[in-house]
Simulated scan of single mutants.
Amino acid sequence: MKTTLVIAACLISFHCIAQSKINLQLKVQLDSILQTDQGIRAINDTETSEKQKDSLAVFFGQPKEVLIKQFWNYAHKIDSANMIKVEKIISQYGYPGKTLVGEPANLAVFYVVQHAGKIPKFYPLIEEAGKKGELPFMYVAMMLDRKRLQEHKEQVYGTQVYGETFTDPKTGKKRFLHYVVPIQDAANVNKRRKEAGFDSTVEANAKRLGVVYKPYTYQQIEDIKSGKVSLD
């Protein structure tokens, strides 16, 4: 009886693989792209252990101290190279979602677009993928927030933080303002975050990113920089 069940299970598994629409060659390519995109950022993440950083240094073929010191140079080169690959993939397949490449390979194009500065061009594609269930909607939410940040508009889900240096007009000294980008209807942001699939509040997410959450408006930020309102 057990043998019959095992054979039946194997036949079902084989049938599922045979019927799968997963493009394995494309999946491998996207897995590699995702690994480089996330790997270079992990090297600069305070939550990455030294052992993990050592492994990443081997992967990238550079001492971790060099990768950390020249992080933005390496990240820019990787992002640019990945974007060239991704644009070719999109031209051939559209958005490669979970139906085509499985998970987490379906996140690769999202991250590359998010990091390579091509959001205005590709946001509609990302949004469509989210609506079709090919990409978890919270990633669409993250890209929408970054898109609105770049347009100097209020974000919707509170995923983006920003930091800028300004000169205090009262003291003439340089000050640094690190804040969660102003949020549209901030009172209900955590409700929207939950509906979008986030498992953290805007306060917890800000803390993870090293910011104490304050529901600033753009006008309040300008008032702080002009000296009308004290930062302290």
Score class of each variant (00 low, 15 high):
104 P>I: 03
129 A>P: 02
121 K>G: 02
51 K>N: 14
211 V>D: 01
24 L>R: 08
85 K>Y: 04
192 R>A: 14
134 E>A: 02
101 V>G: 01
145 D>R: 15
116 A>V: 09
221 I>T: 10
81 A>Y: 10
149 L>I: 00
45 D>A: 02
194 K>W: 10
179 Y>T: 08
203 E>L: 05
39 G>P: 08
52 Q>T: 08
151 E>I: 04
158 G>K: 02
101 V>F: 02
158 G>H: 04
119 I>P: 07
157 Y>H: 03
118 K>T: 12
141 A>T: 06
174 K>W: 08
48 T>K: 00
3 T>E: 12
65 E>G: 07
192 R>C: 08
44 N>W: 10
184 Q>N: 09
200 S>F: 09
48 T>E: 01
161 V>T: 15
67 L>Y: 04
227 G>C: 07
108 A>K: 01
145 D>I: 09
64 K>Q: 09
100 L>P: 11
143 M>K: 10
142 M>E: 13
72 W>N: 11
214 K>R: 08
142 M>G: 14
215 P>R: 06
112 V>N: 06
85 K>S: 12
30 L>R: 03
197 G>T: 03
168 D>F: 04
91 S>R: 13
74 Y>S: 02
20 S>D: 05
114 Q>I: 09
128 E>V: 07
133 G>A: 01
130 G>A: 06
82 N>W: 01
192 R>F: 00
94 G>C: 04
153 K>I: 01
132 K>Y: 07
228 K>A: 12
1 M>W: 14
40 I>P: 02
4 T>K: 08
113 V>K: 05
88 K>E: 13
222 E>P: 08
160 Q>P: 00
41 R>I: 02
184 Q>D: 15
190 N>C: 00
18 A>P: 04
96 P>H: 03
151 E>H: 05
61 G>K: 03
75 A>P: 00
12 I>L: 15
227 G>Q: 01
135 L>K: 10
212 V>F: 08
73 N>I: 13
218 Y>W: 06
14 F>H: 11
113 V>T: 07
99 T>G: 06
175 R>S: 10
113 V>S: 05
38 Q>R: 11
114 Q>K: 12
187 A>T: 14
8 A>L: 14
41 R>C: 00
9 A>Q: 12
147 K>G: 02
120 P>I: 02
93 Y>W: 12
118 K>S: 13
96 P>L: 05
165 T>A: 13
1 M>Q: 13
40 I>S: 00
49 S>N: 11
206 A>Y: 06
101 V>R: 05
19 Q>K: 10
49 S>L: 02
183 I>M: 06
154 E>T: 07
78 I>E: 03
72 W>L: 14
212 V>M: 13
114 Q>N: 14
179 Y>V: 15
141 A>D: 06
159 T>H: 01
152 H>K: 10
78 I>K: 03
128 E>D: 11
6 V>S: 12
209 L>P: 02
171 T>Y: 01
102 G>Y: 08
189 V>Y: 00
189 V>P: 03
78 I>V: 15
50 E>I: 03
177 L>I: 06
186 A>E: 11
184 Q>H: 13
215 P>E: 03
23 N>V: 08
217 T>R: 05
155 Q>K: 09
8 A>G: 05
132 K>G: 07
93 Y>S: 08
